[in-house]
Simulated scan of single mutants.
Amino acid sequence: MTDVNDTDAANTDAELARHAAKMAKKKAARDRMMSGKEGEKGLIIVHTGAGKGKSSSGFGMILRCIAHEMPCAVVQFIKGAWDTGERRMIEGHFPHLCQFHAMGEGFTWETQDKARDIAAARKGWEKAKDLIRNPDIRFVLLDEINIALRYDYLDIDEVLAFLRDEKPPLTHVCLTGRNAKDALIEAADLVTEMTLIKHPFRSGIKGQPGVEF
């Protein structure tokens, strides 16, 4: 008579063996795929969509650069004098690795001055170009530039031409903000769309430190 415990052990052993074989097969396929990927390239990265996380993800990559001691920079096209956690941390602890330039003057509905918004966007773009041209800076985050592009405060063709013709080959540039232009999405190497499912703002909860800023 077969002991129930022996049967259970045999089933467990068989299941573990199947899992190990499955994982070995997956690893072999992954190794084959990775064996053909040797090159490096400075990427054009776009974070867009109505959901939260576009800037947060961009700053996550900035932190990775800092951890690798890779010189990097941030240009903010909307947030100006805002006291944000990321700005405090970078300016207070890592100014030798990351330049931080808050060039915006607030959302367009706050300034209510189109000419002023355009001037601020142009100023931010000129700073961004200087930073991107510097081959010592390996990663540049253009935070909320997609908003300036959406309202045509910056010319999309000019931005794309610059990224194509003047960006150093190994420099990464990340452009965040909802409603990214189709031409930018087409030109980018990596595009992520954040999808809004739920947000506490719709329930009357304001933005909170550590979550929103």
Rank of each mutant, 00 (worst) to 15 (best):
T84I: 00
M89C: 08
W82S: 15
F100G: 01
G106Q: 08
Q99F: 01
M61H: 07
I66N: 11
E105I: 12
P71I: 01
R116A: 15
G106H: 07
P95V: 06
A119N: 10
L97F: 02
H68Q: 13
E105K: 14
E91V: 12
V75Q: 04
I90S: 02
E105Q: 12
D113R: 01
Q99A: 13
R87E: 07
L97N: 04
T111L: 05
E69P: 01
G92F: 08
T108Y: 08
C65Y: 06
R122Q: 14
H101F: 12
I62R: 08
C98Q: 03
T108G: 00
V75W: 03
R88T: 05
L97E: 02
K79R: 13
M89V: 10
E91Q: 14
P71D: 05
L63G: 11
E91F: 02
Q76P: 08
H68M: 11
K79G: 09
L97M: 09
E91L: 12
Q112F: 02
L63P: 00
C98K: 05
R88Q: 14
G106A: 07
F77V: 12
W109M: 12
C98R: 03
M70F: 14
K79S: 10
E110M: 12
Q99M: 09
T111A: 03
A119E: 15
F107K: 10
H93P: 00
H68E: 11
H68V: 00
E110F: 04
T111C: 02
I66H: 10
D117L: 02
H68Y: 11
Q99C: 01
E91M: 14
I78R: 05
G80I: 03
E69F: 07
A119L: 09
K123S: 13
A119P: 03
R88A: 10
